[in-house]
Design a binder for these strands. Structure first.
Length: 483
RNA sequence: CGGGGUGUGGCGCAGUUGGUAGCGCGCCUGGUUUGGGACCAGGAGGUCCGCGGUUCAAGUCCGCGCACCCCGACCA
């Protein structure tokens, strides 16, 4: 930051206690509140508005790839969950059950969906007769429930909002292609809309989704050096097709199993946005997802000034209507109070309109990310403000990218690895021989997990030895401590 | 689920050897203010996390719960 001056006094310093900072920002910026039920959260209007922007932007990207939206039920018969062995085992401890209804014990308990692969598998099996029915490309925006032992607002809650996409294909190759296509959609959303740089890659066997053939993810680095899985895309192979008998008659007259995929991004991404961009004054929201892109703070002393300022505010409002998401703060608080409040709440650009501006027919724009001020004549505003918002958007991405570069380490030495994980955190990239036992041992010894095997690998075969086992390396992998 | 910590107006906290609850901020009313969290005056707001116990008397002592935070275990 160019300006280290700390105006907002109400929140903990990021460096002192990151998780305390995080909780205070979430609550003071009025993003979310605790609910009466453990692990559940109330998403307040300001937080929900971020989610609506996430939905709008991602939904458009999905639809560009041919995906349509639908809705499947909240309650899932127990027998469905049991049809895919790995899946049941993986989710069993997290499932909440409905056992009574209408005052009576139910014949079959109903799961509150932890995810919808099973009920969608059941449904697709009925819909699919011929290869002509494929592919099916459906997404749903909904809530799911997973009983969690330890919860944090947005990052891990028992109930959360997300989208889950479910596709069915004729071939394994096509499913694989779709899996990677949606991973790329997530990357583009994260980097271009949320301004969060992400590593894109494959999960290890240990970390993959229960029931998947392969799991891919985007991984982001938070301000405290811990990693956050920000989106996942699974190639489910024929596992769920087998469990739910999703078969089609192919052109060659043979009955064949479908291949399926699923992919999801949740309200956790909001936690990521907070932890990637925020500073010790509070939130910093990337303009594309910010509920208010610009907040207008009017300033006056005398009544005459008040009317001149008021008139200018109205002109500005009219001029920018439909072009910029604008909030005019007409509350009784002093300008100084408003500056701090809206900085804490992360509005990317503040527009000060006072007597001097009324006189000059201009406004004062102040960026949240670096507090740089700029006087803009009224006739240039309509062009300049959207441009400045884009500049902030790019600056936030750039800053996060630089932060990640500074906090990414390469090592061939396990000793150094341990030191980095313990002292500095961040991403650690190593040569790796894909060994589950070694992975678990590393986790045991250092708390670091294999976040991702990046798609971006060195040219040709990986040379050298695994940093842990000394076996010939098969790839490069990235480890980190994670949320 | 294990170890540690904390629960007192909306928020942050104080409350002594047990004696019947207070401070700052916020909130309401009126007035003066307004380019980086204004000021004065008046006012409202409390089952002290819950239940049980000890005691003439419990925010304070004892027991059992619950919630939240931190560190672990678990976890797409």
């Amino acid at each position: 930051m160019t300006n280290e001056e700390k105006y907002v006094e109400e929140i903990a310093d990021q460096g002192d206690n990151f998780s305390q900072w995080y909780n205070q920002v979430v609550r003071k910026a009025e993003l979310a509140d605790y609910a009466p039920v453990r692990g559940c959260m109330i998403i307040r209007p300001y937080g929900y508005a971020i989610w609506e922007n996430v939905q709008r932007l991602m939904d458009a990207r999905f639809k560009e790839t041919g995906v349509v939206n639908a809705y499947f039920p909240l309650l899932i018969p127990r027998s469905f969950l049991e049809k895919e062995a790995e899946h049941v085992e993986g989710f069993a401890p997290e499932v909440a059950w409905v056992t009574r209804g209408g005052g009576e014990e139910l014949e079959e308990p109903l799961a509150i969906r932890p995810t919808s692969e099973t009920i969608i598998g059941h449904t697709y099996a009925k819909w699919i007769q011929s290869y002509r029915d494929l592919p099916i490309l459906i997404n749903q925006w909904n809530n799911v429930m997973r009983w969690e032992k330890r919860t944090t607002l947005f990052l891990r809650t028992s109930e959360f909002l997300w989208q889950e996409g479910h596709t069915a294909h004729r071939t394994l190759e096509e499913a694989q292609e779709r899996t990677l296509q949606m991973l790329e959609v997530y990357r583009a959303f994260a980097e271009e809309d949320a301004a969060i740089p992400v590593l894109v890659g494959r999960k290890s066997e240990n970390e993959k989704f229960a029931g998947a053939l392969r799991t891919y993810s985007i991984e982001a680095l938070m301000g405290d050096g811990k990693a956050l899985q920000a989106g996942t895309s699974h190639n489910l192979g024929q596992n769920f097709a087998r469990g739910f008998d999703m078969q089609y008659l192919d052109a060659d007259g043979q009955r064949k199993l479908c291949a399926t995929t699923s992919w999801g991004v949740s309200t956790r991404i909001i936690g990521g946005i907070i932890m990637v961009h925020g500073d010790s004054s509070g939130l910093i929201l990337p303009p594309r997802v910010a509920p208010y892109q610009t907040v207008v703070v009017p300033i006056w002393r005398k009544d005459a000034e008040k009317s001149a300022v008021g008139a200018l505010v109205e002109r500005v409002e009219k001029m920018l209507k439909g072009k910029v998401r604008l909030k005019v703060d007409m509350s009784e608080n002093t300008p100084g109070w408003k500056f701090n409040e809206w900085e804490m709440r992360g509005v990317p650009i503040r527009m000060e309109i006072g007597p001097r501006d009324a006189q000059n027919d201009s406004v004062m724009l102040v960026r949240r990310d670096n507090r740089v001020k700029e006087a803009v004549p009224l006739d240039a505003l309509q062009a300049r403000l959207p441009e400045l918002l884009e500049e902030v958007q790019h600056a936030l991405f750039q800053r996060a990218l630089e932060f990640r570069a500074r906090n990414t380490y390469y090592t061939d030495s396990y000793e150094e690895f341990k030191h980095i994980i313990a002292e500095k955190r961040g991403f650690v990239r190593v040569k790796w021989a894909e060994d589950s036992a070694a992975e678990l041992a590393i986790k045991e010894e250092t708390k670091a997990t294999l976040r991702v095997i990046p798609l971006d690998q060195p040219e040709g075969d990986v040379q050298g030895k695994c940093f842990y086992t000394g076996k010939p390396a098969t790839c490069e992998a990235v480890f980190a401590r994670a949320y």
